[in-house]
Computed example of a mutant assay.
Amino acid sequence: MSTLWAFPGQGAQQPGMLHGLPDAPVVRACLDQAGAVLDEPVLGLDSADALRDTRAVQLCLLIAGVACARLLLERGHRPDYVAGLSIGAYAAAVIAEALDFADALRLVALRGELMQRAYPSGYGMTAILGLDLSRIERLLEQVNSAAAPVYLANINADNQLVIAGSHTAMAQVAERARAMGAGAARPLAISVPSHCALLDAPAACLAEAFAQVEVRRPKVRYLSGSSARLILDADKLRDDLAYNMCRVVDWHSTLQTAVERGVRLHLELPPGTVLTGLARRVFSAGTVVAFQGTRLDSLDALLNQAEGLDR
């Protein structure tokens, strides 16, 4: 059966996430490489205080995902597909051998700085559960304004959506959503309004930096978390990575595409288990597992079985 390695996005971060990585030479080498490229001790990025900074969060997610994926690669495993939610796309591109890890580190550091600088306060993201897309879109039309902008940001499931914008506008949408029967409307641990037009300008700046970096055709099939389509071309991948910060994430459709293409084992790389919960709704006939909290020998057995069936 085909396998998908999925890399989580911002909001999945956890204090100590780099300190808690498996103690293996390939993981330590990954941490050392990141420290050398960034010219800073990367184990200082995952404290609760440090994770208040968008740059630190995004770097930790990249490093954790690449380190654990490299550990699995060293143990003889290889994904059939990779995909990443938002910043997770960078780790996916590294594992697909389309983007060098060193370049990814520099680009992600810049990405986080651009996003934080554009909206240092007063903005963020809110998850709304229990309402469908059409009703959320109607609420956004009612509330959105130049003074208090708010937009659709993520389609995580058919009834789990994320909005982005000013705190004032999001609070209005959340209040109206609850009145319409939403099960929950809660702010996320994200301090910038990602995946909407508010980040058009930072994305354009990042694209300029991407123009100076080599991006190659993926050696592993790469599914875009924005378009939910397979990307085979290097230039299209460059565009997908540079601009994903200002494009709606359609993770629900990405998972559906994976299932339609024969994926039956979904593995979530660290940190966390957020994507695993979302995948269970779609992979009803498959296997869904998170790296975090699963023994390595159990992961080996699952991946060996899937790879054996695929052959």
Rank of each mutant, 00 (worst) to 15 (best):
residue 37 V to R: 02
residue 251 W to T: 04
residue 222 Y to P: 01
residue 199 L to D: 02
residue 33 Q to W: 07
residue 265 L to G: 07
residue 226 S to W: 05
residue 210 F to P: 02
residue 11 G to A: 10
residue 112 G to T: 08
residue 197 A to K: 10
residue 155 I to S: 06
residue 167 H to K: 09
residue 50 A to G: 01
residue 53 D to N: 15
residue 235 D to L: 14
residue 84 G to P: 06
residue 259 V to Q: 09
residue 142 Q to I: 12
residue 184 A to R: 14
residue 57 V to R: 14
residue 184 A to C: 03
residue 32 D to F: 00
residue 34 A to P: 03
residue 102 A to M: 02
residue 143 V to H: 06
residue 52 R to H: 13
residue 275 L to C: 07
residue 162 V to D: 01
residue 160 Q to P: 04
residue 186 R to E: 14
residue 303 L to E: 08
residue 237 L to C: 10
residue 178 R to N: 08
residue 272 G to F: 12
residue 16 G to R: 01
residue 250 D to Q: 10
residue 102 A to W: 05
residue 102 A to Y: 05
residue 29 A to Q: 15
residue 270 P to D: 07
residue 306 A to E: 01
residue 74 E to D: 15
residue 211 A to I: 05
residue 179 A to N: 06
residue 59 L to Y: 04
residue 43 L to M: 13
residue 213 V to R: 05
residue 135 R to M: 09
residue 169 A to E: 02
residue 139 L to E: 06
residue 171 A to T: 00
residue 91 A to Y: 02
residue 150 V to I: 07
residue 162 V to Q: 03
residue 232 L to T: 15
residue 183 G to Q: 11
residue 308 G to Q: 14
residue 74 E to N: 10
residue 80 D to L: 01
residue 261 R to Y: 07
residue 301 A to M: 11
residue 207 A to E: 09
residue 301 A to T: 13
residue 152 L to V: 01
residue 134 S to W: 08
residue 2 S to Q: 13
residue 171 A to M: 11
residue 139 L to Q: 08
residue 131 L to P: 03
residue 279 A to E: 02
residue 29 A to S: 13
residue 284 S to E: 14
residue 258 A to V: 09
residue 111 R to E: 09
residue 18 L to T: 06
residue 269 L to K: 05
residue 49 D to I: 10
residue 195 H to W: 07
residue 145 S to P: 04
residue 143 V to Y: 07
residue 204 A to Q: 15
residue 130 G to N: 02
residue 275 L to R: 01
residue 124 G to S: 12
residue 213 V to W: 03
residue 176 R to E: 12
residue 52 R to E: 15
residue 234 A to I: 08
residue 4 L to V: 13
residue 250 D to F: 10
residue 202 P to V: 01
residue 197 A to W: 00
residue 240 D to Y: 05
residue 165 G to Y: 01
residue 216 R to E: 08
residue 13 Q to D: 09
residue 158 D to C: 04
residue 51 L to C: 07
residue 205 C to Y: 14
residue 280 R to D: 11
residue 251 W to N: 04
residue 112 G to W: 04
residue 77 H to D: 11
residue 54 T to A: 06
residue 132 D to V: 07
residue 285 A to D: 15
residue 60 C to V: 11
residue 247 R to F: 10
residue 51 L to E: 10
residue 251 W to R: 06
residue 27 V to Q: 03
residue 166 S to L: 03
residue 285 A to C: 05
residue 182 A to K: 04
residue 28 R to W: 12
residue 264 R to F: 10
residue 180 M to H: 08
residue 83 A to M: 12
residue 217 R to D: 13
residue 133 L to M: 09
residue 231 I to S: 00
residue 188 L to N: 02
residue 280 R to H: 14
residue 119 Y to E: 02
residue 278 L to H: 07
residue 46 D to S: 15
residue 184 A to E: 05
residue 190 I to G: 00
residue 100 D to F: 00
residue 235 D to N: 13
